[in-house]
Amino acid sequence: MEERIMYHTQECRATRMTWPAYCESNMAWLGDGYYFWYEEVDAVHWGRKSKKRRDKFEVYKSNIDCSKVLDTVFDEESYLFWKRQIEKAAKAIMKITMVKPSLKELNQYIKEKASWKDDMDGIMFADLPFSEDLLVEEYNYRKRIQLAVYKKEAIKSFEFMYDMGR
C-alpha cells in the first residue's frame, strides 16, 4: 500500500468534521470528489483565499492510499497516458457537439461516462502555485499539487490539525 499524508481545508464549523467534505461544486475541477492538497502550505493558502464565509478555516490531515490513484505528477507513464486521454476526449466532444467542454466537464465525463471511477481511486494533478511561500519571485519552482479522491475507501484516516483566522 502506498500511503501519503495530504491536507484538507474547510471553513470553521461549530463541530469538528470527522470526514472530509465531498466537493460537487463547479470549482471541483478534477470532477466531483474529496479534495486534498499535497503540501500544507497550499492548504493554508486555499483557506485564506477561498474559505471566506467565516472568519476562520480549519486544516485537517489524511492518510490516503494512493496505490490506485492516477499519479500524473510524479509518474511519467501516468502523465503521458493522462495527457493523451484528455486530448482524445476533448477533441471528440468538440467534434460531436461543436461545444468546447470545460475542465470540470471533461474530467466528469471521463470519470462517469467512461466509468473510470470503477477502476481507480482518484487522480493527482499539479498546476502552478499562487502562494507567498515562494522564495524566488515569479519562479514557480514547486508544484501546487491536488488530489481528487473518488472512492472513500482510499481515505484511511482523517484528523483535525488546527484552525486559523483568515
Binding site: 496505490s67 486521454q85 482524445k88 471528440a92 461516462k113 467512461a114 473510470w116 477502476d119
Partner: peptide, 20 residues
C-alpha cells in the same frame, strides 16, 4: 496498479457510443 489499457478502452467505447 491501474490498468491503463482498460481505462483507454472504456473511454474509446463511451465516446464511440455518443451521438450529438
Amino acid at each position: 496498479m491501474i490498468d491503463f489499457k482498460k481505462l483507454a478502452d472504456k473511454l474509446d467505447k463511451a465516446l464511440a457510443e455518443e451521438t450529438k
